[in-house]
Write a protein that binds this DNA or RNA. Structure first.
Lengths: 229, 229
DNA sequence: GAAAAGATGACAATCATATGACAGGCGTGC
DNA sequence: GCACGCCTGTCATATGATTGTCATCTTTTC
């Protein structure tokens, strides 16, 4: 799962640092800006997935920046969370009007910050709709996350599920072990190529007699999912 | 019966107010938004039972918002009634195409508004919200707010009840912890994802031997309610 | 038949989920 | 106002599934 990038905009080093640490621990990538000007440029350059914006800053204020970002098409979709000192309730309305997606009052706990950030990100990224694939009575349904063989549910591990999903959406084509590692395991993991063999075996086992012929060995190359032959 | 929540979206304060009063008299809970942005957020956060949407608004228009709401899964099921100025008959087609469930022409009487609103709500209320759902001898009856297993009443906490209700009305589908938090806890609460595990356990415990197999773990993903396997 | 490539079974480390316990919050009844 | 019990969310720990690797066996190729 690729981690999300968060842009922190605050004029105080200490606060930026504190937030950055909290977010990095929660496995987000973090970029920082200490004024609105820089922040605006970074938003355009790095396209962060979310912006944490301090309300009060010297020069262009946070809320002004929020408005500006929402006005421009390139940045309008980026969710914004405003940070503000306590007890400024009317700011809240103003903030949400400016297009902020959420609003956190200082002081806040790292836990709260991360939780709300997650919630906002979740809302901003509607899950893609995936369709079921069916071949020869073998059916993989991403919605229920289930694989059935002629109607009967199959026992299948997470990796084998991903492997099968990849194969079923890329049929009739041979892949090397290396390609499969990239596609199914993800770009930069370090595992032995032979490991693919093992998972292929596990997948075949899971598929059972009825369908294991669909996973074919291509000698000297790798594997292929095919209904033919 | 718990009263329904209606989200009013209109840029004119006076109109919102007028409608709000009418609806509150008819015993609906009312929330308001004056632009599409806010409305979208509120729809996600508060999960209103129905949305009253002004056709013409500055910025994102009503119809655009309608389309967006229908496109996203979390809001697709919410019925929408479009409000529009008189004599724009062709809007009607466009509106219904965008997924609106009904269409009211301004000016309208409060009586008419409430009547059509009721009608739409009646039509739109899916089973499980008002009607009982039953699966394999496990029965959840929203009217009496009661769960029975082969006739015998079950001890079940509020959260577990909502969780079960959600599951029974969304069967054969895998949900991540995150999605369950959104759907069952509501969009704006911040709790640990692991908390879901605990409530799943409590729910399973409540269901007892007879039915706990219906709540299935989908390793690496989340949980699923299913009668199969 | 020998070499090369793939299949298979076993295994230990790792990771995700299940479980039990606990403390704070909330409402109820006294 | 106060004690009580229920519900919740969180944590630490237990349990069990999954993963990557290796050694060994089988098949294919020439």
């Amino acid at each position: 799962m690729s981690s999300k990038t968060v842009l922190i905009v605050d004029d105080e080093d200490a606060i930026r640092e504190m937030i950055a640490v909290a977010l990095e621990m929660a496995d987000y990538r973090v970029i920082e800006a200490e004024d609105a000007q820089t922040a605006h440029a970074m938003a355009l350059d790095h396209k962060p997935d979310l912006i944490l914006l301090d309300w009060m800053m010297p020069g262009t204020s946070g809320i002004e920046l929020a408005r500006r970002l929402k006005r421009e098409e390139a940045t309008a979709e980026m969710p914004i969370i405003l940070l503000t000192a306590k007890g400024e309730e009317d700011n809240k309305v103003q903030g949400l009007e400016a297009g902020a997606d959420d609003y956190i009052t200082k002081p806040f706990s790292p836990r709260e910050l991360v939780a709300r950030l997650k919630a906002v990100l979740r809302r901003a990224t509607p899950p893609g709709i995936e369709e079921a694939v069916e071949v020869d009575g073998l059916r993989l349904d991403p919605t229920s996350h289930r694989v059935t063989s002629n109607g009967g549910a199959l026992e299948i591990g997470p990796t084998e599920y991903r492997l099968l999903q990849f194969f079923m959406t890329h049929q009739e084509r041979a892949y090397t072990r290396s390609q499969l590692l990239d596609q199914v395991w993800g770009g930069n993991v370090y595992v032995e190529e032979r490991t693919v063999d093992v998972h292929i075996r596990r997948l075949r086992k899971s598929l059972g007699e009825a369908h294991q012929h669909l996973i074919q060995t291509v000698r000297g190359t790798g594997y292929r999912f095919s209904t033919r032959e």
